[in-house]
Amino acid sequence: MTAPIEPPRIRFLPSGSTLHKLSAVITLALLIAVFSFTSPAFLSVNNGLTVLLQTSVIGLLAIGMTMVIITGGIDLSVGSILALSGVITGLTIKAGLPVVPAMGLGVLTGALCGFVNGLVISKMRITPFVATLGMMLIARGLALQLTGAAPISRLGEAFGTLGNGALFRIVEMQPNGFPKVIFPGIPYPAILLLVVAVLGWFLLQKRQIGRHIFSVGSNEEAARLSGVNVDRTKIWAYTASGALAGVAGMVLMSRLVTVQPNEGVMYELDAIAASVIGGASLMGGVGSISGSMIGAFIIGVLRNGLNMAGTSAFVQMIIIGIVVIGAVYIDQIRNKI
C-alpha cells in the first residue's frame, strides 16, 4: 500500500481565502488613502463615525445575506422586508405600543417573512431567486398598502434613539453658553453591527448550525445523505436573514425618526455586493462574516468618499458595479491558484 505522493506545496503564498480577504483589505486601505487626498474632510473622526453609521445598515443586511449565500441561495427580499418591518413598528407605535416592544414586533415581522421564504424554498421547492423575488414584491406591496404609501412621522424622540444615539458622547459646556462636542461618541448602530457580526461569526464558525450551513452549500446531496436536516438549515438561514433585515429596518427608520414604506429599495443588491466582494461564492459553500464586513465597508467608504468628492449618484452606481465585477474576477483567479 503506497500513499499518493503529495506535490510539494508552495508555502509562502497565502491560501485562497486569505488572499482574497487580503486583497479586499488592501482595496479598502487604498480607497481611504485616495479619498483622504481628494477631500481633506474625509479623514476625520467625525466622518469616520458617519461612515460607520452609514455602513451599519448594509452591514446588518450583509450578515444575513452571507449566511444565505453560503447555503447556495440568495435573498432578494431584504430591502422590502426592511421597509415592512419599519412600517409594522411605526404603525404599532402610533397605536400606542411603547418603542421597544414595537421594535421587537418589527424584527419579528422580518423573521416571519424570512421564515416564509425558507418554507417556500425548502418545502415547495421553489428556487431561492424566484421565492425571494416574490417576497420582495409581497413585502413591499404590504408596506405600501398598510401606509397608503405615505411616510409615518412624529414617532417620538425615543424612536430616534437607536439610530441617532451614541455611546461615550462627551459634550462640554463652553463659557459662552454653547455646548461643544469633544467626542461625538460611538453611534449605537455601529455597536449593534459589531455585536451582530460577532454573533454571526460565532454561529457560523463555532456552532453546529453554521457547520450545516456550509455543508448544505458545499454539497446539498452529501449533507442530506449524511443526516443533515437540509430543510431546517435553509429555513434557519432565511429566517436569520429576514430578522436581520428587520433589525436593519429599525436602525434606518430610527435614524430618520420617520417610517418610509419606500425605503430600502435595491438594498439587497448592496448586501449581495458586500458579501461577494468579501469572498462569498454564489455557488455556495464559501463565505465569511469578516469578509462581508470588509465588503460592506468598501461600499460604505466608496459611497461616502465619492459623495464628499462631489461625484453624482449615477456615477457611484457605475463605479460600484465595476467593483463588484472586479471582486468576482479576483475570486476566479483565486480559485485557479
Binding site: 457547520r211 454539497n219 452529501a222 459553500g285
Partner: peptide, 22 residues
C-alpha cells in the same frame, strides 16, 4: 459509502467525517 463519496468539497476532512454528527 456512496459511489459519489458524498463529501462536502469546501470542508476539511474532520468536518466531512463528522458531517451531520458533529
Amino acid at each position: 459509502i456512496y459511489q459519489t463519496l458524498a463529501l462536502a468539497n469546501h470542508l476539511d476532512a474532520p468536518a466531512n467525517l463528522f458531517m451531520g454528527r458533529e
